[in-house]
């Protein structure tokens, strides 16, 4: 039995508003001058979430796989743009991030659907794709920023390697190892401590939705492994695509930010 369902939930949402009134009351009492902000945040979050709820209702009802792919592509494009901004200074950063996120998402979702872990339905693929893309975006951003910094700070070593006859890939082998490590460590760390320090979102959501803890754990484990795989693949794709822009066809270092 779900804890919240349909319009029955409305009185409970209103009851939760009491907490907002308490927060606003504390703000007024302590003269922190945040009552207005609390009001705006409350109204905005209410409107935004109701709107997305209706959009998701409509989207989840679709059975056209092309529409699902289109939505995933839009999400990937936005994620690539965002991660690319984080990696400003890397040549074609947005394109690199977009392609890497798309590749990571394609491989991860392809495997999950191919192995029949999830069915290819909008109601499953869109939220799962959103998690994969969001996670890959964070990793790509980290990898791009670190790649730029590594190439900038070790340019002399890279040129020394090139001067000894190394190809661009050989000249940045050590740098790419460090870049991948730094991009993946946050995901690995959060996977390590899961369940000990924090209960992850999927599990919490499912338990609140009425699922048993064991069913929630099962899904959460799939999600964690999926995110780890997507992060690893996207990080690798980002690093392997990203370094190329720093080299000319004649193996010269170029476009290094000052």
């Amino acid at each position: 039995m779900p804890i919240l369902s349909g319009l029955d939930a409305l009185p409970r949402v209103l009851a939760a508003l009491v907490l907002v009134i308490v927060a606003a009351g504390i703000a007024w009492w302590q003269k922190v001058d945040l009552e207005r902000d609390i009001g705006v945040a409350t109204v905005r979050s209410f409107v935004q979430l109701i709107a997305i709820g209706y959009i998701l209702e409509a989207v989840f009802d679709t059975t056209n796989p092309l529409f699902i792919v289109l939505i995933l592509m839009v999400m990937t494009t936005i994620a690539g743009y965002t991660a690319g901004q984080r990696g400003a200074g890397v040549p074609n950063a947005r394109l690199v991030a977009g392609v890497a996120i798309a590749a990571g998402t394609l491989v991860t979702l392809g495997l999950l659907v191919g192995l029949r872990v999830f069915r290819f339905e909008a109601r499953l693929i869109i939220p799962i794709g959103g998690m994969v893309i969001g996670n890959a975006m964070t990793t790509c951003g980290l990898v791009l920023a670190r790649l730029r910094d590594e190439i900038k700070t070790t340019r002399t070593q890279i040129e020394a390697a090139l001067a000894l006859g190394a190809t661009p890939r050989q000249s940045v082998a050590g740098q790419l190892r460090r870049v991948l490590k730094s991009g993946l460590l946050p995901v690995i760390d959060s996977t390590k401590i899961v369940g000990i320090i924090q209960l992850p979102g999927t599990m919490t959501g499912m338990i609140l939705g009425g699922a048993t803890p064991l069913a929630a754990v099962q899904t959460q484990i799939i999600v964690l492994y999926m995110l780890l795989g997507a992060a690893a693949f996207s990080a690798l794709a980002t690093a392997l695509l990203g370094y190329r822009g720093f080299f000319s066809a004649a193996y010269q270092v170029q476009h290094v930010p000052q």
Binding site: T156, Q157, A160, A161, A163, G165, A166, G174, Y251
Partner: peptide, 20 residues
């Protein structure tokens, strides 16, 4: 070929630029 050229014309830099 650039790799062949750089093996024939070596270079030593201002800082030794040694690898780890």
């Amino acid at each position: 070929p650039v790799v062949e050229l750089r093996r024939a014309v070596g270079m030593v830099f201002q800082s030794a630029a040694l690898f780890d």
